[in-house]
Design a protein around this nucleic acid. Structure first.
Length: 424
DNA sequence: CACCGTCAAGTCGCA
DNA sequence: TGCGACTTGACGGTG
């Protein structure tokens, strides 16, 4: 079964934020506090992923602030050994595959040796983190090749030489990806094949930075490039990984979209569904698109999965379109069906609408209904004041939603606590 | 509590 | 040689 994953952060999941600090505030005490907090968040994300059947996930490089910098001298692996072990066990129990992806500033092929040293330190940090979680060699570290420096062949040679010097704990996890600027998929495949490094095909990078015409007799299809990348993967690497993203309309070429559009995704999926691959989504709404795509291709076809989604999106839909709200209610009536495509199509279309004030007030009233019997008189007046101010066009709906979120937390309404109404 | 400049990283194009 | 743009989310100070 192909797994769909997302990168680093979640949207609309409480207790999953990652914190850091500036260099000058990075005392040992501060760092310990931040790491503890971030490990709590990671654990919450892992639990969320298990609950939502998301079995592919990228761990943020910011988990340990200044993890590869002399600023952080803490023996964090030892200090938090039991925390790492616990999360690692949960990853195993949930059959989760995790990966990491050092940023664009980790450059292994720089002509500046100090830059390379820092890149190696950063790779060591990433490998140490995955070791602490006791993940296997199918748990990958994704890296770009780096800069060109006016001489691509020389730059590639430098990458290969520096790769050879890496510790095997890094080598057995390192994989390489085509980027949107310098190294196209044919470049990366050449390096991968020569050095025995698995290659990740990124569809959007490929679109922005396709192979040069003179290097290929005829341009290959995405599916063919994916097959060529697949040949670089060995059994110990686990399933071949792909990066998938969509262009955000109107933004700089290569910008990741806000959400994954269903139709383009399903078209992509039809080309890869028979291949033994895992797909990492790179998209702003993170887990939301991962759950959506998983549900779209799920063979389990449990309507309960859609009902759970509906519980999170419903007030967002209600404030945009009562008609769409009713349409989805009707769609989910038949408990023997699994109308995932229609469900998400209506969601997708409706979410593009700007809420009208009347509908937004209606949705807010629905939410307020959860509290109206328990709320104090003062809270009732506070709510009324905000909703009137919104109705008269004096403010946006943001203060209303903030207020309702505060109430949700105070009165612990679990149904609302998971609602995306407050976060999208 | 909203707002916005700053941070942190390395490369590259342009004065 | 040096500077700004590029990127990203959160910090951290101001109003």
């Amino acid at each position: 079964m192909m797994e769909i994953g997302y990168a680093c952060l979640t949207v609309g999941v409480q207790g999953t934020d990652f914190r850091t600090c500036t260099r000058k505030n990075a005392s040992n005490e501060k760092l310990v506090e931040l790491i503890e907090h971030n490990l709590d968040s990671l654990e919450t994300i892992v639990d969320y992923n298990i609950k939502n059947k998301i079995r592919l996930f990228r761990i943020t490089s910011d988990l340990i602030p200044f993890g590869s910098s002399p600023v952080n001298q803490l023996p964090w692996q030892d200090l938090f050994m039991s925390r790492f072990a616990r999360i690692g066990e949960r990853l195993k129990a949930g059959n989760l595959r995790v990966s990491m992806h050092p940023g664009q500033y980790t450059v292994l092929n720089s002509p500046d040796v100090t830059v390379v040293e820092r890149a190696v330190d950063d790779l060591i940090y990433h490998a140490n983190l995955l070791d602490a979680l006791e993940t296997g060699t199918e748990s990958k570290i994704v890296l770009h090749i780096g800069g060109v420096y006016g001489d691509k062949e020389q730059a590639i040679r430098r990458f290969c030489e520096n790769y050879k010097k890496l510790d095997s704990s890094i080598k057995q996890r390192l994989i390489i990806e085509n980027d949107d600027r310098n190294y196209s998929i044919d470049d990366v495949l050449r390096i991968g094949n020569e050095m025995g490094i698995p290659v990740v095909f990124d569809n959007l990078h490929h679109r922005v930075n396709p192979t040069k015409a003179e290097t290929e007799e005829k341009e290959l299809t995405e599916s063919e490039w994916i097959d060529l990348a697949g040949e670089t993967w060995r059994p110990q690497d686990g399933r071949q990984k792909l990066h998938y993203s969509q262009q955000e309309p109107g933004k700089r070429s290569g910008s990741h979209s806000e959400t994954i559009r269903i139709d383009a995704f399903l078209e992509y999926y039809s080309a890869i569904k028979e291949k033994p691959v895992d797909v990492m989504l790179e998209v702003k709404d993170k887990n939301l698109s991962a759950v959506k795509c998983r549900n779209l291709i799920s063979e389990e076809r449990e309507i309960g999965r859609l009902e759970l989604e509906w519980s999170r999106y419903k007030y967002l839909i209600l404030e945009r379109s009562p008609a769409a709200y009713e349409a989805i209610r009707a769609l989910l009536k038949d408990k023997s069906a699994y109308p995932a495509k229609n469900f998400y199509r209506i969601l997708e279309e409706t979410m593009q609408i700007q809420p009208e004030a009347g509908h937004a007030v209606n949705a807010a009233q629905h939410v307020w209904g959860y509290f109206k019997d328990q709320a104090t008189e003062q809270e009732r007046l506070g709510y009324l004041k905000l909703i009137d101010s919104y109705r008269e066009g004096k403010t946006s709906s943001a203060p209303v939603k903030r207020y309702l979120w505060k109430m949700t937390e105070k009165y612990r309404q679990p149904y609302l606590q998971d609602s995306l109404y407050f976060f999208l």
